[in-house]
């Protein structure tokens, strides 16, 4: 630590921002799943945090039981989560498509509780937290007094690439356009000869796939899985989506980084017991001042 006190302090702040970017990336990947589904069928999929949890368990199994590496675990988690997400939609939500929204919401909570307690069964994974062995080499670099590890670079890089890809996909592909069409006018889509069911399925597939990547990145930095890990992370991701303006993909990403930054700064300032209070406090403030969220008015960006 030969640096002068001033630059040393600066390095601490940048280091904390690096931490916030990591946490924010995980929140953002999950928040996108909430926002995509909401954007299309105006429904909050409360089981989404648990899809994240199941993906983290798949990564755990892939690494400790099947001895797969990073890419093996990534593929296993994404495939597993997509199958799970699409199945949940087909089995639990599709039959209720025409039912009141509240029935759908209660079903989602039921699915969430089912997934948590199913994984917690002694014969499945048990309720004990499990340690995920490290599966990528961790190399660290120091740039101007700020430490980066290969894990942080991978997490941030992968999250940004995926979010950019999603943005491009929604804007420029046929399926993306179809999704925006369902979002704008649900009833008119079948008239154009498109299948609403398959468009909704693909929204669930994309959301679940992103949650799976979130699960993988999460266990790299926080190497532990437990059946109830999806509750808090899912809630934080959900409020990120709401703060950003639910239904808007850029809003979800911005909200996620904002919440993560706020949390990390609160802890960095020495008030770690206040972190959740501040995160949820921000939600209340945003809802009071701008109920549609920070980016809520950009209707045309809705997916």
């Amino acid at each position: 630590m030969g640096a002068s006190p001033a630059s040393w302090k600066e390095a601490v702040v940048i280091q904390q921002i690096v931490n916030a970017l990591m946490l924010g990336s995980v929140y953002a990947l999950i928040a996108l799943g909430y926002t995509i589904v909401y954007g299309i069928i105006r429904f909050i999929n409360f089981a989404h945090g648990d899809i994240f949890m199941v993906s983290a368990y798949i990564v755990f199994a892939a690494v400790s039981y099947w001895k797969l590496g990073f890419f093996g675990a990534l593929v296993a988690a994404v495939v597993g989560a997509v199958i799970l997400g699409v199945t949940i939609e087909k089995v639990a939500y599709r039959p209720l498509r025409k039912a009141p929204k509240i029935s759908l919401l209660i079903t989602a909570i039921g699915v969430s509780l089912f997934l948590e307690n199913f994984v917690a069964l002694p014969l499945v994974m048990g309720s004990m937290p499990k340690v995920v062995p490290s599966f990528i080499p961790i190399i660290s670099y120091t740039v101007g007094g700020v430490r980066f590890t290969s894990a942080q670079v991978i997490i941030f890089g992968l999250a940004v690439v995926l979010m950019a890809l999603l943005g491009w996909f929604i804007r420029n592909t046929k399926l993306g356009r179809a999704m925006r069409a369902v979002s704008t006018d649900y009833m008119a889509v079948p008239l154009m000869g498109l299948s609403v069911d398959s468009i909704i399925s693909s929204a669930f597939a994309i959301g679940s796939g992103l949650a799976a990547v979130g699960g993988l990145l999460y266990v790299i930095v926080y190497p532990m899985v437990d059946p109830f890990m999806g509750i808090m992370i899912g809630t934080k991701a959900f409020i990120s989506a709401v703060v950003g303006g639910i239904g808007n993909i850029y809003g979800a990403v911005a909200g996620a980084y904002l919440i993560a930054l706020l949390e990390v700064l609160v802890v960095a300032a020495g008030y770690s017991t206040w972190r959740d209070a501040v995160a949820f406090g921000l939600l209340i403030v945003v809802l009071l001042l701008k109920p549609s969220g920070l980016f809520g008015k950009f209707q045309k960006e809705k997916v």
Binding site: Q15, G270, S272, T273, R275
Partner: peptide
């Protein structure tokens, strides 16, 4: 101090390391 549900400790650890 942290609460039982906390899973991210990067900010505290960074402070300790610095």
């Amino acid at each position: 101090a942290y609460s039982a549900g906390d899973q991210d400790f990067s900010a505290q650890i960074t402070r300790a390391m610095q």
